[in-house]
Computed example of a mutant assay.
Amino acid sequence: MEFELPSEHRMTREMVREFCDEEIAPIAQEIEEEHRFPAEIFDALADLDMLGVPISEDYGGLGGDQLLYALVTEELGRVSGSIGLSFAAHVSLASKPIELFGTDAQKERWLTPLAEGEYLGSWALTEPSSGSDASDMDTIAERDDDGYVLNGTKQFITNASVAGSILLKAVTDPGAGYDGISTFIVDPENDDGFSVSTEWEKMGLNASPTCEITFDDCWIPEDRLLGSEGEGWKQTKKTLQGGRVSIAALSTGLAQGAFEAAREYATEREQFGQSISKFDAVRDMIVEMDRKIERSRLLTHKAATMYDDGQDVTRISSMAKLDASETSREVAEDAVQVLGGYGYTTDFAPQRFYRDAKLMEIGEGTSEIQRLVLGRELGL
């Protein structure tokens, strides 16, 4: 029996599932091979009011909760990791912080077009030398009359080459450590001194652009500061709590897609006069996939529900992200094994899920960092 969801959540999930099966699934492998960002899919998602799922209706969003957002993210990941990743980065990282920390004027100017799907957003934290210590950054924002001058480089930034706005983390007080980091809204179309220096070729997720961006004496007005100076790291920690729920949901979707491909193949493929699903080794592998996915889904839904209730989700969001990301990789790998030689070909989906799943254990805090967070939460 499935965990009971509110009726509006079920209806939205079914609508998105139908859209994914009809519009995304037929092109999922094609856009990966072409390394093509599918702008038309995001236009269609905007028409469905999906690009601002957890954003207030006052600013063009759907007014949904984190659980609804997790359901939508999972459905997208079930057919395309790339589309799911760009969607999650747009909502959790590029849009939600403006709602949480922005002024009314900033929400009207920058959040509304994001939520309505006029364009996608991006979030720039990681730097070439920062690694897992994202607070160790060299990008500087210096006061200049009624604005700031930005200089530095950001690495592995999702959506940067297709974004209409970017939330940038930069140092405003070099001697203040965590308290010296601030957040700025960058307009990539109109801010001189901003450029996309690299768009990475990757192991997977190649229909979602991952970029290196640079700032060379890029001046922005002071009204682009999100919140107050020095609040950037506190904002980041809050943002990542929701972001980890979305990556858990995306990971669960990837695993579900790989599982469905393996189950379908196993019930149709015959050897020795019967479907291979009747053989213990194959059956047990598929049963284990289902068990792991259900566990990850329940953890994700618990984290989303606690987030909606206003609880501290540091522990549960890290646990959900850790569990679901590892589930996605394990299930995808087993799906390739179920299909055998066919699983290694691009004619079948498991190889794509396998390649896509690996990033889930790296992005928004590696599995090792999640264990560190969980250990701290347990007082270890």
Rank of each mutant, 00 (worst) to 15 (best):
V373T: 05
R78K: 14
R329M: 08
G204C: 06
Q241H: 11
L71M: 05
D216N: 15
S325V: 04
F19Y: 09
E201D: 13
D216H: 14
E23Q: 15
G180M: 10
E118F: 02
A141S: 09
E99M: 08
R244G: 05
E116A: 06
E30V: 10
N190V: 00
E18G: 11
R371K: 12
E229M: 13
E22N: 13
T239W: 00
I27L: 13
R376Y: 07
S246N: 06
D65L: 14
A94W: 10
M360K: 11
S130I: 09
R36F: 08
L374A: 02
V282H: 03
T153P: 03
I247M: 06
I213R: 02
K202N: 14
L45Y: 07
R143E: 11
R283K: 05
M319Q: 06
G164S: 08
I286V: 05
R269D: 08
K234C: 13
T112H: 01
V336D: 01
K237P: 00
V91G: 14
D65A: 15
E377Y: 03
G177S: 03
R244Q: 11
P209D: 08
K292I: 05
S318K: 00
Q271I: 04
N159A: 02
V72Y: 08
G310N: 09
T236L: 07
R329W: 07
S328I: 09
T267E: 09
G310I: 08
Y354W: 10
K202V: 13
G227H: 14
S92Y: 01
E23S: 15
S328V: 06
L372A: 03
F184I: 01
T346E: 13
I157W: 02
L76Q: 08
Y342R: 13
A258S: 07
M137Y: 12
T314L: 07
D334M: 07
V373S: 01
G64S: 08
T198M: 08
S246K: 03
I293C: 06
P174I: 03
S135W: 12
E212L: 10
T12N: 12
E189P: 00
P174D: 03
L5Q: 04
I247A: 05
T153V: 13
E368H: 05
L374V: 01
L125K: 04
L114D: 06
E199Q: 14
G52D: 06
Q351C: 05
A255Q: 01
T112D: 02
F156N: 07
A163S: 14
A25S: 15
T214K: 14
F156P: 00
G243S: 05
P128F: 00
E333A: 11
L226V: 12
T239D: 03
E142L: 11
E4G: 08
E116K: 06
G365R: 15
F156K: 04
I55S: 10
D104L: 14
A262M: 06
Y148V: 04
I157G: 01
D146Y: 03
S318Q: 00
K292P: 04
G242Y: 10
A44Q: 12
